[in-house]
Amino acid sequence: MVDTDVRLGLSGSDLAIRNRTFKNDLVRIDESNLNPDNSVEFASLVEAGLTGEIVSASRFRDQDFFIVSKDRIVDILTLLRDHPDCLYNLVSDIFGVDLYGFDREPRFEVIYSLYSLPNHRRVVIKAQVSEDDLTIDTVTGVWPAANWPEREIFDLFGITFNNHPDPRRILMPDDWIGHPLRKDFPLGGEEVEFSHNVREQIVN
């Protein structure tokens, strides 16, 4: 019997490869933990009393990653935008990740990849969103740039944004069912248009 992981759509050797490497590489190479001494962003968050929001903070390949809880995400991002040591005034990107394959709770992360124009630095803030409560506050008030990316996250992952000014789908058709970038959304499986009588066409 072929070993199959239905959730990830993997079977046989693909699954074996994934399991083997996944277990071996669980310890990240080149990763170090951040603290207020080696990260100005961490220091600013501590200074503003937002320490409790930080779930983890790490540096991987010279890039800082902060995992935070979603409750005060607007405060955190406003601070990072306005604090004189940070000044992350440009949204590089906002997007979602479905961590279904990592067997990790909570399932979703909304990732804010920010760029500081005066300092020319990047930081990545990841807000955890659990499957039970698929909502997070919008940051369109902090950067108007967040408008379309948040619509895209809603469209592709099904995470809704509280107080979003324009909560509609953006890429998929308005009557689409499901959220395609979730890991349990199958690849393919949609009927190809004008293919209902393809068999007859081939025979004749």
Partner: peptide, 30 residues
Amino acid sequence: PVGEAIGAVEGPRGEKAYYIVSDGSNKPYR
């Protein structure tokens, strides 16, 4: 290895960036 990385270049239209999440397999997780 498991981890995340950003590759960004100045394209003709602006900042073109790829954010890759790796789960240690031979396919990009995201």
